[in-house]
Simulated scan of single mutants.
Amino acid sequence: METTRRRVLLGSVATLSMWVAGRMPGLAQAHAADSTTLKISHQFPGGTLTSGDFRDRLCRRFAMEVEKRTNGTLKFQIYPGSSLMKTTAQFSGLRRGALDLSLYPLPYAGGQVRELNIGLMPGLVTSYAQGAAWKNAEIGKALTDLLAAKDVVLVSWIWQAGGVASRVRPLVNPEDAKGMKVRGGSREMDMILKQAGAAVISVPSNELYAAMQTGAMDAAMTSSTSLMSFRLEEVSKFLTTGRDKAYWFMLEPLLMSKSVFDRLSKPQQDAIMQVGAEMEAFGTQAAKADDQSVAAAYTKVGAKVVDLDQAVVAKWQNIARTSAWKDYASRSQDCARFLALAEKVQA
């Protein structure tokens, strides 16, 4: 009798569940999606919504807004400081669907997809406006399509200007680099440094402090934000800023695994892309603010601060055209095409 009663009860529950799913499919789908939590990884120091490295704050703002617009059907966990996955593994993690999202310096993936080195091509982008114009230009479509073919979705276009922190002498003109051990940040940056007579060091941003502290590196080229977030002022005596003129502009987009993106509903996908586009203004404003703040931070500890002028930028560009640009274009037809498309977008 008891067994029969349980069967009747279970059957009634199953029938009710099927009726709800049939009459109220939206409710059933929303309930099923309640537990969807996506992980965002990046290499930068963690913070809060209102303080800390702006790239971490951008991820948190993005997560909060997408959760709100999807009525909580999408939630996020943020993993700063490469605490979830090593920096260099994050791009391949996105491609395999092992990582959901990452705010990732695009040329770090140049070893896997050589065309992506264009994201830090010395002297190619010299202003935020020029970088922002890539998104809706032919080069933007080409990059977006290339990433999609590699199973990655470009969610937010984030550009950052950069400078140089040095512990031995200022690195301003190309001739200053001779004999120095310098981190450029990409294969192409390394090429112009070698052309100028430097020895190049290859490490991710979160390892710069240790390399500078131990003397393994004399100078580091990186974004204004990283120059502060990784506390390089503690191990540097000189700073060349990117606050007025710069030949170092890095594309550090928010990326998402395409396989993960494709599993989401259309409203969820739309929310991610809409919020991602909205984060671009915040990213630009924050990056520009850091270009100013970095000079103040280094001046405060007694470092000598130098700004670039157009004549110095032109010197680095001339070296870049005959070395890095030429080499990049020779690597494949797609590289040559990407460079040509990027050159169409004027400063």
Rank of each mutant, 00 (worst) to 15 (best):
A219T: 02
V182N: 12
K135W: 13
T240E: 06
L124G: 04
A216Q: 15
A133Y: 07
P122D: 01
Y247A: 01
L239G: 14
T241P: 15
T214D: 13
Y128N: 00
Q195P: 02
T214F: 10
A161Y: 08
N136D: 15
A161E: 07
L154E: 02
M189K: 09
Q112N: 09
P174H: 12
F238V: 06
Y247P: 00
V164E: 14
N117P: 11
S202H: 12
L227E: 05
T225S: 06
R187D: 02
R114K: 13
N206A: 05
Q130R: 13
S205M: 05
P105N: 07
M212G: 02
P107G: 08
T240M: 10
P105G: 06
D176A: 04
M221I: 05
A219Q: 06
L239C: 11
M250F: 03
L147Y: 00
S166F: 05
I158R: 15
M212D: 02
R231M: 08
M228I: 15
T241L: 10
R167M: 01
N206W: 15
A216Y: 12
R167D: 01
S224W: 09
L120V: 04
N117M: 07
S102V: 10
A137K: 13
K135Y: 13
T214E: 12
Y104C: 00
K181A: 14
S205L: 03
T144K: 14
Q112G: 08
M121N: 03
G111E: 09
A196G: 06
L171C: 09
I118G: 13
E138P: 10
L171W: 05
A133E: 04
A132G: 01
V235P: 07
F230A: 03
D190A: 09
A199H: 06
R243P: 03
A165E: 03
P107T: 07
N173R: 15
A149M: 01
A196D: 05
L154G: 00
T225I: 02
M121P: 02
P204A: 00
D145R: 04
L239E: 08
A161M: 07
N173G: 11
R183Y: 12
L106A: 06
V155S: 05
L154P: 01
G110T: 11
K141D: 08
S156Q: 09
T222E: 10
I118T: 09
T144L: 04
G123D: 02
A211C: 10
K150P: 00
Q130G: 14
G179Y: 08
K181P: 11
M221D: 08
S202C: 02
A133M: 09
Q213A: 07
G119K: 14
A133Q: 08
K245I: 05
S229Q: 11
